[in-house]
Amino acid sequence: MENALDLLALSPPGWGGNLLRGLWSTFQTTLHSMENALEPLALSPPGWGGNLLRGLWSTFQIAAGAYALGLTLGLFGAFGKIYGGPVLRGTLAVYTTVIRAVPELVLILLLYYLGTDLLNIALTSMGFERIDISGLWAGIYVIGFVQGAYSTEVLRGAFQAVPFGQIEAARAIGMSAFKAHWRIILPAMVPFAIPGLANLWLIATKETALLAVVGFSELALETKQAAGATKSYFLFYCAAGALYLLLSLVSTGVFSLVERHFRRGQPQQS
């Protein structure tokens, strides 16, 4: 038995050393081939990783800008729906219904052409040159306009969730209508609005991918170009998916912190 194990001794005449060396070189070649497989993702050219990260950054910029524009539109829309006359309310009802019923892809195309045409008509009539809107601003305006319809509904729901007694109390101690909104109603709306608004942010980040179909440069289009150039479709779409997932997981984390902050002092929900 001992003789049999002697064959596995690490130094010659045993063969154990050879086995371990063999194992090590297998490990090295595996590692090397994995490195080769991931090479297209390298950050500097000829790798495309840098392009993907730049795409992620413009995705983030477009989403953030669109979200801010959507919130602004939503705030006006919500108060328009609550306090407006029949004409304003009717217009807003058409806006929120149509935007939420028609596919985003169709809306993005329509709004893009409509926006550039209207802007250029306005510019030429004032005697300026025609301009092309850059992808970033067009993306922000198009997605922001769509987001506005959804945030109108979220904010209107949040307004209606504020207990009426609080509004009455604010008026009763003599606050003007504006002050009552600024100091009481808006802060009281925030906790009710946050879950819906967090959801809207996630939708905005994912919706920017549709801009690739129109040809704006962001993560989805960069990925498509990289995948087409290298023919490693599977690798690049997985990588893009991972980046989007990272963005949404980090955002979810941030929003739960924000929600905890704004819910402080409120009774615990059961």
């Binding site: 994912k206 919706e207 990925t223 998916g241």
Partner: peptide, 11 residues
């Protein structure tokens, strides 16, 4: 739910 449908479709 964390990735765009377009990317899933293309993948």
């Amino acid at each position: 739910r964390g990735t765009p449908l377009l990317i899933q479709l293309w993948l």
